[in-house]
Design a protein around this nucleic acid. Structure first.
Lengths: 193, 193
DNA sequence: TGTACATCAGTGAACGCGCGTTCACTGATGTAC
DNA sequence: TGTACATCAGTGAACGCGCGTTCACTGATGTAC
């Protein structure tokens, strides 16, 4: 065998990670197989030895992006601190400015709705897992029946805010948008909402 | 002259309206000039007698979509009622299911960030006008210094919520997402946020 | 130890196709004589 | 009134290009003898 054991799997992972970044930065449709493989240091012909189709790579890339997400439940001493850290981290200018390393939902939610059902389902499941994690960080005083809806609304606020901040051309205004999103998300997390 | 006076302008408007719907439904990148012109009952060659480029049409289509927006300030007897009507109307299942006649921001925010600055500026300006209109519907008791930020956060919540509802594959869950967004947006509109 | 061969990750030419854009042309009409 | 011509919105072939995908091939290595 020409290559070391595990070499092919390594290459596959490298393609997935390159794709994951490129998709988030440029959008799935704008990324071609040839450019993608070149970025991974390969030629386009070898692509189909790793994946059945571009669509399969899209799913793998999304799974990878979610796995490497910086959202960790232990990022704070208390649940309240962890939630606040998450919200502030999500709505940082650094996250706005680096979509290729950021939230896949924010980067791709618009076009994923037009992809195959299998792809939408992967995305859908990850979105649900994300809101569940947010729900777990809500104060104990938030009623059981409201936790899921509150977490969904909080993530919706973060998502919409980040996207507005990314599209706006004036940077001071963009920063202000992020700030207003932080306040709103934290406000929604308080009980008796 | 072969055609009636004003005929060309009529054709131009027809192309813009067809494009405005197609862009919102399929995304700008996925819509080709040929398909677009066919939808307008024409052949692709005539396109450049009306527009300098596809990008120019994108801007015209966005302006048109914003102009035909259903958001009217008079849609309620009081400001509170008008705001609630707007939020509920925006987060209706019917709006989720008909992006081609819906909010251009929700449909295109993801890809517009990757377009020319001129296009982003048109989009940016319209987004600002939209939040200003929301700010005007906030209760008088909301402090002057907070009105803009609050309106931005409310629209962010609506935007993110609608996009989540559009991508989720389970329809009951999608409906629940819309509901949670309505409650959250209205909650944010209350003073002392 | 030295040679012949099997392996297989990766290569690059080629496929049909649709893209945005250009341009010489069409043909129904209004106008000029 | 009848004919020749100018107008110009719309047509459709063609441009170079990149897309996703296929496939015969390469060539460095491990194994068999």
């Amino acid at each position: 065998v020409r290559f070391a054991k595990g070499h092919k799997e390594e290459t596959r992972q490298r393609i997935i990670e390159v794709a994951s970044a490129m998709f988030r930065r440029e959008g799935v449709e704008a990324v071609g197989i040839a450019g993608l493989m070149a970025e991974a240091g390969l030629t386009h012909g070898g692509f189909y030895a790793h994946f059945h189709s571009k669509e399969e790579l899209v799913r793998e890339a999304m799974l990878s992006a979610f796995e490497h997400s910086r959202l960790r439940q232990d990022a704070g001493h208390t649940k309240a601190a962890a939630l606040e850290n998450f919200v502030r981290s999500y709505l940082r200018p650094a996250h706005r400015d680096a979509p290729e390393r950021g939230c896949a939902v924010a980067a791709l939610v618009g076009e994923i709705g037009r992809h195959e059902t299998a792809t939408r389902t992967v995305f859908s499941d990850k979105l649900e897992a994300l809101t569940k994690r947010i729900a777990d960080l809500l104060p104990d005083s938030v009623a059981e029946t409201e936790r899921s809806a509150t977490a969904t609304a909080i993530f919706g606020t973060m998502l919409g805010t980040l996207q507005m901040a990314r599209v706006v051309t004036d940077s001071a205004r963009s920063d202000a948008i992020l700030e207003s999103g932080i306040l709103a998300a934290l406000h929604l997390a308080k009980p008796s909402g």
